[in-house]
Amino acid sequence: MSARLAALARNLGPPLLFGAAMLGLWQLVVRGFDLKPYFLVAPTDIAEAFTDNWHNIWEAMKVSGTNAAVGLAVGTLFGVVLSFLLARFRLLDELVTPLSIALNAIPAFVLVSVFNNMFSSTSEVPRRLMVTIVVFFVVLVNVSKGLRQVAPVHAELMHSYAASGWQLLGKVRVPNAVPYLFTALRIAAPLSVIYAYVSEYFGGAQNGLGSRITSNIVNSKNSVGWAYVGGACILGLAFYLFFALVETIVVSGRVQPSGGRA
């Protein structure tokens, strides 16, 4: 256990020290050159604003976090289901894949503006839809790849067992795709949070982290704006760490703990 703690300290120590050093440098530069708050605020001011506004930041984190989580869940569900169908039915693949690529090429602000017109101005649905689409695409691409990339030796082996298409799916393709799903989630989790913030920029209720950051900066309350940015970072990190942890737990049994297959 102490060896594990030592390893953890070895891994976490350098980046934590580096981060603290950067914050110190930031503080020194702001104070040393006497930079004005409208240009750049000092980390200590941000920390103060953060504790003063903690309750509001927490409320905004809940709103944006819920939007991201709902979009992440629905997008993952649809992405996985469609990957299965595409892996099983080749024709569907040829029909759907070009369409989904085209959908993904539409810029986010266009989609959010369109969705905002479709739903009432206080609805969270447009934001959740936006997150869903982004997550859906990441999951679709990765899981499809995992379902398709069956090692030739495994394909021949299953063929020699006279396995049916469904058996091949269940015994080889799906387990093969599991690490790909977690890779997708690790990528999609921070993206879901980012798209939740961004979609708040294009109208709707002023209740999430994205809209709070803009409104505070516009009102020259820069340190408060930065405090909300801090909240946004925490939320994004939490999403990422959660799925990185789940990935480690689920996939760790298959490969050598250090290194091995990705």
């Binding site: 090692a151 082996l157 067992y161 396995a163 015994k171 080889v172 387990p175 093969n176 490969v255 297959r261």
Partner: peptide
């Protein structure tokens, strides 16, 4: 009828299955 078994240059074990589970695969099918 699975009248033959087959082995290749690569062992081709499934890395998500334990050794026992790998051996059981043809029987499962």
């Amino acid at each position: 009828d699975q009248d033959y078994g087959m082995a290749f240059q690569q062992a081709g074990l499934f890395d998500w299955r334990s050794v026992t589970k790998n051996i059981e695969l043809p029987l499962e099918l």
